[in-house]
């Protein structure tokens, strides 16, 4: 096959079952000995929805119609980001035992860590699929776009995960800083609130956040039942392209001498 793109990816493709085996290992180890096993990953989002439903219908009231759906869509998608990014920091440092003893493409370590988070998250989102019509969700053809938007979002997260995984090796405080930053991140995107209630300059500041763009896409598709605005899709794509480029360049530069710093 004289195709240069295929030639670039062949060494990684050869290791595809390594990624699969690493993800399966993480899943097995996580639910080791738990009677309900995999079903536990449904528990968290279910509790979340029930709790929000109680709090926001009996304690606080919001002006947004179907506010629970708005909230759940935002929170679940933010959880994917925060779990994946937080875990990516330790993906390389905790795999030092493998990296120091054998050669394989290092990029597969943060990638399989992200896939593990993604698998658990997809199971969790099944709860939303079941409860979607009850929370006021609308079925429309635009939902067919959802996998594409989710793919864009996952690629964006992947770029950040690559960067943080190599930076953590040199700067071990990163994980703690990231965990705190993620708490701020939650409030710096329209998850709990509607972006239109903000006044300048906050509106502009919050709009600069790439997560805001992605939240707008998810809210449009899953909450408002409309197609996302084209300019939001383009801005989100630009962020994804930026994150993936920075992540890959940083990773390639640092990965060569990774072993010596672990």
């Amino acid at each position: 096959m004289p195709n240069p793109i295929a030639a670039t990816f062949r060494p990684y493709w050869q290791y595809r079952d390594l990624v699969r085996n690493l993800v399966i290992k993480d899943l097995k180890v996580r639910y080791q000995g738990a009677v309900l096993g995999f079903f536990w990953s449904l528990g968290n989002p279910l509790a979340l929805i029930l709790l929000y439903d109680f709090v926001f219908t009996h304690v606080f009231r919001s002006d947004l119609p179907n506010y629970i759906l708005y909230l759940v869509v935002g929170v679940l998608h933010y959880n994917l980001f925060s779990q994946a990014v937080s875990q990516s920091c330790e993906s390389l440092t905790s795999a030092s035992g493998l990296i120091q003893k054998i050669y394989f493409p290092r990029i597969l370590v943060p990638t399989s860590s992200l896939l593990f988070t993604l698998v658990l998250w997809v199971v969790a989102i099944l709860i939303l699929v079941v409860l979607y019509p009850f929370l006021g969700g609308i079925y429309h053809w635009g939902l067919l776009l959802y996998p594409l938007i989710l793919g864009l979002y996952v690629a964006f997260i992947w770029g950040i995960a690559l960067a943080f995984s190599v930076l953590q090796v040199e700067f071990r405080d990163l994980k703690h800083l990231v965990d705190i930053a993620l708490m701020f991140g939650f409030w710096s995107a329209p998850i709990v609130y509607d972006i239109n209630v903000l006044k300048p300059p906050f509106l502009e500041i919050i709009s600069m956040n790439p997560l805001t763009q992605f939240m707008d896409l998810f809210h449009a598709l899953l909450y408002a039942g409309t197609l996302p605005a084209l300019n939001h899709v383009l801005i989100a794509s630009a962020w994804t392209l930026g994150a993936v480029s920075v992540g890959m360049v940083l990773f390639r530069r640092k990965a060569r001498h990774l072993v010596e710093d672990l």
């Binding site: 050869q14 290791y15 595809r16 079952d17 390594l18 085996n21 180890v29 493998l98 003893k101």
Partner: peptide, 25 residues
């Protein structure tokens, strides 16, 4: 036994270890 995980069975660890050498399942 690079990559051996104590929680997995011997059989599962064979696959994990061998895939680190670039083998397909």
């Amino acid at each position: 036994g690079v990559g051996f995980n104590p929680e997995l069975t011997g059989y599962e660890n064979i696959f994990l270890n061998a895939s680190l050498y670039g083998f397909l399942n």
